[in-house]
Design a protein around this nucleic acid. Structure first.
Length: 487
RNA sequence: GGCCUCAUCGUCUAGCGGUUAGGACACGGCCCUUUCAAGGCCGCGGCAUGGGUUCGAGUCCCAUUGAGGUCACCA
């Protein structure tokens, strides 16, 4: 049995769309779950869409996501080069072979003619087949030679049979068959000498011994064209695994292919937005695949063991940012305190400039109540400076805190805390508890008053004593006195 | 428009002829609690419609409807 080999073949656009990443993930998992190899190939055949640094983005994304490729431009391999623009002679040779055996032909139609054709077909009164009309399909050899000799620009088109049907079996979609009459004489080699995706990927997948092609379902209907190319060469085609598309839902409830209007859609954007790569991977793995059990927390390593292409489902899935957020919160909590501290520190520093505060303690408070890293700065505003606040936030029904209890609680707390030597969370808690007992208040009533005076903020990460500890004795008492003076 | 494909709670999904249609997110409530979270418990909510096949259909067949994809010298 031949070794399973899958590939991820993105074109370097400068960013990694989340749908693309998911395709890479599934290709990777298809290979790894069967002990196979995963290769990376750069499809840069569109000269007009070249983007500086775009290939690096692909390398970086795969690295951060943990999808290590066994072959590729970055790590070599025995089937290189792995960048299509470096394989031009190969495509040319194979295209010529197709022309020679009558499965492809030179087409000299100008873009103007094609545009005009397109316009005619757009007319509602137009009946008949859309697409290329086969104008150059049967040009006499002498004419072709003459045009070639004269240096006329040309493309090479596939010559598809006009009758019969072409069918294949898809791991996800089952048997798919298309009437050849529906197929176009697609362009194989463009006028600039570069191959189209349609041609290049077939040649490469064969030469690179790819056994399973994993890609988006937008290719389902076009795959018969590719099968025909394989057949023309006498090659066996790979197994196809077409993936359901990832959709997005906009504010009006309209569903369409996931795009910028739905939120952050590139992997880089998501990282910047404070998501963890592990959470993104876990979430997108479940968009179109599931283990047939109720489990849903999976590391990449676990996915490598559990994944089966057969369990991929057919219908498009809507990307749900809410659920991703939940996954992210789960992964944040799974981090060790040290790991979390490292990730959180830059965000803490955005809000907390005062270096006397212990950021490790702040991080510890944050870790249990966070969904994404970018939420950090917004929760820490009160550390550097007590925000302006109205005394009526001292009122809280559940804590039985009122404008009357607050000054009493504060006065007594200040008095008690001034003599407190050991300024730790635990000691602070006991001290304030005693204050409450002495006053005949609920502990909550005192805690509320203290926390409000210390932070001027209704919702804070951590309770009153957590924050007092971090603020330190001097600053805490200053704030508490300030709070009391407002009554 | 032609062709292809898909269809279970709002969302992601399990189900593969006989189930009180299960889980997760979100939402609501309760518990816990030093605010808010986190965590625990409970709840709300679904088989697109119409025909068949069958003793019996979410599960099989057909139609309808809806949705998506594709018809580029983009991938």
């Amino acid at each position: 049995m031949t070794k399973v080999k899958t590939r991820f073949a993105p074109s370097p656009t400068g960013y990694m769309h989340i749908g693309n990443l998911r395709t890479a993930l599934y290709a990777y998992l298809t290979a790894k779950s069967q002990g196979g190899d995963f290769i990376l190939r750069i499809e840069d055949t569109d000269q007009d869409r070249k983007v500086e640094g775009a290939v690096q983005v692909i390398y970086d994304t795969l690295k951060i996501a943990g999808l290590k490729n066994d072959e590729g431009p970055d790590c070599g391999g025995s089937n290189g080069p792995y960048v299509q623009s470096e394989r031009l002679p190969i495509y040319r040779e194979y295209a010529q072979k197709l022309v020679d055996q009558g499965d492809a032909y030179y087409c000299f139609c100008t873009k103007e003619r094609l545009a005009q054709l397109h316009e005619e077909q757009e007319d509602p009164n137009f009946k008949g087949r859309h697409g290329y009309d086969g104008h150059c399909r049967n040009l006499p050899k002498e004419e072709v030679d003459a045009l070639l000799a004269a240096g006329t620009p040309y493309v090479i088109r596939q010559k598809v049979p006009q009758t019969g049907t072409t069918a294949y079996h898809d791991v996800v979609f089952g048997d798919v068959s298309v009437n050849n009459a529906e197929l176009q004489d697609i362009v194989l080699i463009k006028a600039d000498g570069f191959p189209t995706y349609n041609f290049a990927h077939v040649v490469d997948d064969h030469l690179m011994e790819v056994t399973h092609v994993t890609r988006g379902s937008e290719y389902v209907a076009q795959t018969p064209s590719y099968i025909l190319i394989y057949r023309a060469f006498g090659w066996e085609h790979p197994t196809y695994i077409h993936l359901p598309l990832i959709m997005g839902k906009d504010a009006e409830g309209n569903v369409s292919k996931l795009s910028k209007r739905h939120g952050a859609v590139s992997f880089q954007d998501m990282m910047q937005d404070g998501y963890l790569p592990e959470a993104v991977i876990n979430y997108i793995a479940l968009l179109g695949w599931n283990p047939k059990t109720d489990e849903e927390m999976f590391t990449l390593a676990e996915l490598e063991k559990r994944f089966t292409p057969e369990a991929i489902n057919k219908s498009p899935a809507i990307f749900d940012y809410e659920k991703l957020l939940w996954f992210n919160g789960q992964y944040i909590r799974k981090l060790s305190p040290e790991e979390f501290y490292e990730k959180a520190l830059p965000f803490i520093r955005q809000a907390v400039k005062n270096e006397s505060y212990d950021c490790r303690k702040i991080a510890a408070l944050l870790q249990q109540r966070l969904e994404k890293l970018t939420q950090i700065p917004g929760q820490l505003g009160f550390f550097d400076e007590l925000p302006a606040y109205e005394t009526d936030i001292h009122v809280n029904k559940k804590s039985k805190a009122t404008l009357e209890t607050a000054p009493v609680a504060l006065a007594k707390s200040i008095e008690t805390l001034e003599t407190l030597e050991d300024w730790t969370n635990e000691k602070l808690y006991f001290a304030l508890k005693e204050v409450a007992d002495g006053l005949g208040f609920k502990a909550n009533t005192v805690m509320w008053a203290v926390r409000i005076a210390a932070t001027g903020t209704v919702v804070t990460p951590g309770g009153a004593t957590d924050i007092l500890e971090i603020l330190g004795k001097e600053e805490s008492l200053r704030r508490l006195k300030d709070g009391l003076s407002r009554f």
